[in-house]
Design a protein around this nucleic acid. Sequence first.
DNA 1: ACGTAATCGAGACGGTACGTCCTGTCTTCCA
DNA 2: TGGAAGACAGGACGTACCGTCTCGATTACGT
Lengths: 205, 205, 205, 205
Amino acid sequence: MSQALPCPIGRPRCSEVDRAILGAVISLLTTVGYHRLSIEAVATQAGVAKTSIYRRYATRDELIAAAIEVNRPALVIPDTGDLWQDLDQVLEQAAEVDLSALGRQTLAMMLGLASTSPRFAQIYWQRYLMPRHKAAAVILERAIARGELSADLNIDLIFDLMCGLLYKLTLFPLETEPVEVYFRRALEFLLQPHYHQPPQAVEAD
Amino acid sequence: MSQALPCPIGRPRCSEVDRAILGAVISLLTTVGYHRLSIEAVATQAGVAKTSIYRRYATRDELIAAAIEVNRPALVIPDTGDLWQDLDQVLEQAAEVDLSALGRQTLAMMLGLASTSPRFAQIYWQRYLMPRHKAAAVILERAIARGELSADLNIDLIFDLMCGLLYKLTLFPLETEPVEVYFRRALEFLLQPHYHQPPQAVEAD
Amino acid sequence: MSQALPCPIGRPRCSEVDRAILGAVISLLTTVGYHRLSIEAVATQAGVAKTSIYRRYATRDELIAAAIEVNRPALVIPDTGDLWQDLDQVLEQAAEVDLSALGRQTLAMMLGLASTSPRFAQIYWQRYLMPRHKAAAVILERAIARGELSADLNIDLIFDLMCGLLYKLTLFPLETEPVEVYFRRALEFLLQPHYHQPPQAVEAD
Amino acid sequence: MSQALPCPIGRPRCSEVDRAILGAVISLLTTVGYHRLSIEAVATQAGVAKTSIYRRYATRDELIAAAIEVNRPALVIPDTGDLWQDLDQVLEQAAEVDLSALGRQTLAMMLGLASTSPRFAQIYWQRYLMPRHKAAAVILERAIARGELSADLNIDLIFDLMCGLLYKLTLFPLETEPVEVYFRRALEFLLQPHYHQPPQAVEAD
DNA sequence: ACGTAATCGAGACGGTACGTCCTGTCTTCCA
DNA sequence: TGGAAGACAGGACGTACCGTCTCGATTACGT
């Protein structure tokens, strides 16, 4: 839409300001959290006028969405040729992203906002969930193609279950064992009924 | 502990006021939602002085927690003698509770607050999760005792997965089919490996 | 009115409480001042229930009036036989009373309240001003009788002038010299035209 | 000092708001009086946000001081060439100012606040007292220069006495005669010892 | 070189809600 | 009945942000 109108008459926006704003948002998100993040504080911390924020973002949520958007990590779909090597790499990425301080803040925030604000839910859905869903599908379908998994696998259901598990563990962290281990066990449990004939592979643990 | 000391010196609190406050909170939660619920509005709607609210609850969150606490539905653990009859009753209860307007509001709120406020997380954990976890355990263990399921069932994992699924579907409602149906399918999928026809399979671990 | 009804059915009032209240008022008057004196604070400091204060005094001003009433210093009218010895004793008394911490507080308070509250003005008038006016009249009339002053002296005017001077100096303290000295000079100036050497001047009026 | 820097960065203050605020203060002072004047009421009556008041004035007293400051009447020093014509004009001005409803309110307030708040005392001293003191000095010195009064006149003392008398009569109004008459008699009494040789001028009354 | 037009800082403005403090009344138990 | 304790409705406090606005100063671009 409106293909980046190339004739921006008037003084162009200072990209320094852009960066300062989003940086301040990230900084404040990790320190005071979503609820206590005020635009006034962002302006102060960024050394920027309030007007410069309101000019760019219509609402507080839009501002925050933009901030976490630029900090969104790249998603790499592994292709090692082996199901579990692929999955382990995915789990590793997830651990990096979702279990950092900012990552947990972000995720928790998303959970809180998704229901309230359809707009937020949509952003999260498009930017986070869809790509990961697609990545999961790619990996699993490759495994099916290789004959590692049976074709009757319900990818959607498994994705939803793992995704929900991430939410559950984000809100109520485990105390007994590292999250990554628990995650892997869950994944093994979910995939186990679908291993193909060479059943001896099941022992892998 | 401190068994409700029965000699509360001074004028006793008016229970009418208690009810008015919590009622107003519930009412406002369903209308304007968590974020826009102001204590001022609660006081007005309840026909009560602001001080009477602050006297009872130290923070807004405590107030809201109390309000949804009293509106918490009773949890009934079914015992029909049949696994799937029990499970269907549980699912039905969950549908009633979690998919009503207030239920979804509440759940979404909890998700959003649990990470922010440890206090909230704890309340939710103790009041909601623990009882349901226990209920699930009871039902499944009865089924195991009856020989319907194999004993190597990982109840915790299955509970976490279902619980997470609830979160996922709360945040991102399905459009393809009713939630209850999807839930049931998930449950079937998770329990399927544990059906107990060939008793000799039990040793596998 | 209602001459101290001697049949106080029920439990008699605890005079300990009376004293505690008035003491707390005086204490708070000198520390936080009139404006910031709250009944709540009086109750706390006196170790007394708010009710016990309201039962005794209808308004805050009444309470304060009562407190400074009991602390009112006795007025002694000197009679040395010499005009200036009498006056010096009066000035000394005034210095003690009006220039102490509590005295200045009280006086300033009275000045501030007299205009606002007719009731306060009346109390001050009756309890403070009238007695002092009378004392002044007694002293000066004795001097006239002794022939030290001429009889055409306008006592009222001189009293008003000295009284006003007290107010003025209370509000705007002198920096150049001690108040007592200034007062004495004022008095000398006011009485000077009335010294009585040539007795034939008396007829002028 | 700091000569009114003419480059006030940021949006300039709306002078309309200034006027509305101070107007409301004056209005409320005359109606409800000093003690019951609430900032909330000022904001409401002025049709202005509370913040706009707090932005300008740090305390309630500062606000009130500013309000009566702008309503301060101009002081005109008469110069008729005759002592008593000058004095009568001054008395007339004083009567107008100090005996109006607002004038009495103001004066009473000043008396009450001067002791409590040094700030208030200073304002009153600089804005009210000093100018009037100077005016008195000018008039009396002119009279001395013209030979109407003797040079040994203690202007400060006479000013203090008259000033104090004003306070006294403000607090305790006369009932026997108009204030102006009493004032004039006091002035005559104070100046009488200083009339110069042509003693026949004394009869002026 | 000069107007046009947008950006940026600073901060005023009308608002809403906050959480605290105090008021004066009341209700309850204990002595 | 008096007194201690404290709940209650209500009012104002002073503060923090909200989102909008009005400024002067700056920075580009097309004449």
